[in-house]
Design a protein around this nucleic acid. Structure first.
Lengths: 113, 113
DNA sequence: TAATAATATTTGAATACTTTTATATAATAC
DNA sequence: GTATTATATAAAAGTATTCAAATATTATTA
């Protein structure tokens, strides 16, 4: 997969409320599966499935301590994305010249109107 | 929808190769539907469907010039996201202390091992 | 007004994603 | 060794996305 597609695929994997929460937790440090069972309110298998998806996509990894699996962040794109998700914007992108009521304006290119 | 969910939903809508391409084109300026039919190689109805999805989610809007619909970017989160998508990272997030071979380490919390 | 051009909508089929339920595995404790 | 705990996997059911095909709409041109 070329880097562009890979990055877009990451977006798709990440764009889920539970998985965003998991990743936010992981930016705070190592977490084991049962930590997530507590903090997210979903079943153990479902936690495991989300973690597996994140792991098979190279976003997280784990180490083992006894019977605990300790997950941690691996993909450096994630912290930047999570921060951007929280950014506030005051204004929309400025509108190109057109009438706000009739929504009429002039196409800047070369096609037949 | 609370802002957090709204933003996550934006991510989900955006996370598609065609729609990313559409948005990249729109960061360059106004485009009409047939511009996209040329630059993306997909059918006219499909272009229209993607544009409708982006529009109903408040990401883009359009003005009218004759029978052309001229689309433009509205959501200010988009340019930042597109830029982040292109960012290069040299290294993974640093691994917490654990053996790289056996993948054994110590859970930092309070649970039974 | 009829024909054409630009775009949108609808429907359906295929596919992908998500969650639930049940079961499996592997490590520790007894 | 048996029971228990932590986690994973599999199968099935439900839900959502995607795209293609056909049709509709609207503005312009002839």
């Amino acid at each position: 997969m070329i880097p562009r597609e890979k990055r877009i695929n990451l977006l798709k994997v990440i764009a889920h409320p539970i998985r965003i929460k998991i990743l936010e937790d992981l930016t705070q440090g190592v977490r084991c599966v049962s930590d997530f069972e507590d903090s997210l309110e979903i079943s153990q298998p479902n936690v495991s499935q989300h973690l597996t998806l994140l792991r098979t996509n190279g976003i997280i990894d784990f180490f083992v301590d006894g019977r605990l699996k300790c997950y941690f962040l691996k993909e450096p794109f994630i912290p930047d994305l999570l921060q951007l998700l929280k950014k506030d914007y005051e204004e929309d992108v400025p509108t190109p010249p057109c009438c706000p009521v009739t929504k009429k304006g002039t196409y800047p290119g070369e096609r037949r109107r």
